[in-house]
Amino acid sequence: MSKQLELRLSGSGGQGLITAGIILAEAALLDHKNAIQTQSYGPEARGGASKAEVIISDKSIDFPKVTLPNMSLALTQIACDKYISDITEDGTIIVDDSIVLPAQLVAKNIYRLPIIKTAIQEVGKEIVANIVALGLIVRLTGIVTDESLEKAILSRIPKGTEDLNKLALKKGYELAEGLLS
């Protein structure tokens, strides 16, 4: 997949989505692609709905902001209500299965998946839901290589949490593989 990915990651502050955006962008750099990450600031970043956006491209990126994402992830209902309907027609929407999707959502793919549940039940920590989501996104898009993603994750996470995050990544991949098979 070589086309430009314009990704929006939304949820509540503290879910690690800004970190996830940075990790994905750094993985893209390791693959010698270009990437730009932006995020929401201010009170909304500390609760309510926060968002991080990432553009990844083989070419140089001029305009740094995502105007209309071609992939959008929401981990909370508030984030979903606020952001999810902005999507290209051929885009992909991914939401946590705790979320009720609005009616008349137009997108090519719409997935409701147990991202947070997977983090809690299969990895053991809700805090790694962001890494589960990254595994899922990367397996669906192939936007970065598995090696680069793992390297980027390991360079950003606290020491001592490597195994936890690797497991979360694996579970994310498996969620996607379940969809693709």
Binding site: I22, L29, A35, I36, Q37, T38, Y41, P64, K65
Partner: peptide, 9 residues
């Protein structure tokens, strides 16, 4: 705020 806050290579 655009160039100050965006992350880039």
């Amino acid at each position: 705020e655009i160039t100050g806050h965006m992350r880039e290579k």
